[in-house]
Simulated assay, not measured.
Amino acid sequence: MVISKYNLLILFIWCFSLTNCQNKKMEEKYSWLGTVSAPQEYPMEVYEGAIVADDFTYGFDAIWGTQNTGWGKEGGTMNVNTERMDAPHELEFTWYSLVEKKFYTGKWNLDKEKIKTLFDEGFVDQDTKKKSTYSSFVVGLAPQGRVVLWMKGPGNQKEIGAFQAHDTVITKEKAYDNAQYMLKEGFADRMLKDPSYKTFKPEVREKIEKEGYPAADIYNVYREKYNWKPAVILPEGATWIDFGFTNYNGEQENLFDQSLKDNTYKSRAVPRFCGFYWKDKNNNRYAVWIDAFDDKEIFDLFQKSGKDKNIDLTIKVNEDNTRVLVSLESEKEKLPVTKAKIRVSRKIE
């Protein structure tokens, strides 16, 4: 059989296209694991769950135990043999809320294209100065069946979905063997009230005893966003190096090099804590950490500033690099932040 030049060209184009498609398919595999997050004040007991991709399922069960690392903070992870997987398209989860003494369950579709875009875009890792990407999914379990899913990588965490579970009943007869302990009489009370179980950190337990549990709907309030950016004012001749921060909604950003130069107003949740480094005119390095804002004060100040305003989270360093003043500033208003817990380093050798 004689193959014409035209047919040969078509065959070449077909083979080239097939190779490209296969390569593209290979490029769409990602390396990821899963973990669980719950508020420190609202411990959750994992019953079962899964993050599901076409070619892989990352499972959860009672071996994960009690989770309350803090809202948005990852817990442990389980290693898997699979090295690269498709982007997941589904989340399902069932858990026991110890404070509410209720089981919740749900199954939700995920925005696979959004997940793939975040994987592909990635970010620059400040430590390595190389492009990196997200490596785990954090499943957040909150009171009243609220669920949030984040993607996490070094210095970065993005919310990719918020969902609503419904309560369910799981009986001793229905529960699988390894989860039977959750159904034992008095289990929740022992976990919550007996200090020997160490469910809560001492300071968290003390706060609960003094103020009670946080309002169950606060985890929706945490997701509200304002148009703000960090603004650092340094003594003359000093250089701003970076700015890292975590917001109440669990998202995390790390600005440095080009991203710090491009620093601009973005729709972000209220910051929970932040920190940055700078060099003075003599090239001495310093750092400041705002370990915690006062919840009521910082939300009141953002609400007073308004969602329709551009807001600067302004941190002004004094001339001898020993103190800072923090405020929220918009076009016509400056509101001082007075209750934050702040640390300023000495000169870093």
Rank of each mutant, 00 (worst) to 15 (best):
P214G: 08
K193N: 15
I208Y: 04
M182R: 14
P195L: 05
K198L: 10
L192P: 02
K198P: 02
I208Q: 05
E206K: 14
G212L: 11
A188S: 14
E206P: 00
G186Y: 02
R205L: 08
E211W: 02
E211Q: 11
G212I: 13
S196N: 06
D194M: 01
Y197G: 00
A188M: 01
P214M: 09
A188F: 02
E206Q: 14
M182V: 14
L192T: 04
A215G: 06
T199F: 08
F200G: 04
K184M: 13
D189H: 03
R205S: 11
K201L: 15
V204W: 01
M191K: 14
R190Y: 07
M182S: 10
E185L: 08
A215E: 14
P202H: 03
Y197Q: 14
F187E: 11
G186K: 06
A215F: 05
K184N: 15
P202N: 07
E209W: 03
D194P: 04
E185Q: 13
F200N: 04
P202L: 07
K193L: 11
P214S: 08
Y197L: 13
L192H: 06
K198S: 08
K207N: 13
E203M: 06
E211H: 07
M182A: 10
E185A: 13
K201F: 11
E206N: 12
F200W: 15
T199K: 04
K193Y: 10
E206I: 04
F200R: 04
A188Q: 02
G212M: 10
D194L: 01
I208N: 05
M182Q: 13
K210A: 14
E211V: 00
R190H: 13
K184V: 15
P202Y: 04
K207D: 14
A188D: 04
P202I: 03
L192Y: 05
R205T: 00
L183W: 09
S196V: 11
F187T: 12
D194H: 05
Y197D: 02
T199L: 05
F200M: 07
K210E: 14
T199M: 08
K210W: 07
K201G: 06
E203P: 01
E206T: 13
T199G: 09
K210Q: 14
R190D: 15
M182P: 07
A188G: 02
I208M: 06
E185W: 03
R205V: 00
K210R: 15
Y213H: 15
T199Q: 12
A188Y: 01
R205Y: 05
K184R: 15
E209S: 11
E203L: 07
K198A: 12
G212F: 11
Y213M: 09
G186M: 05
K210C: 08
G186V: 07
E185Y: 06
I208E: 07
M191N: 02
L192I: 01
E209F: 02
G212P: 11
K184Y: 10
S196Q: 08
E185N: 12
I208D: 07
K184I: 13
D189Y: 03
K193C: 02
G212K: 10
E206S: 13
G186S: 06
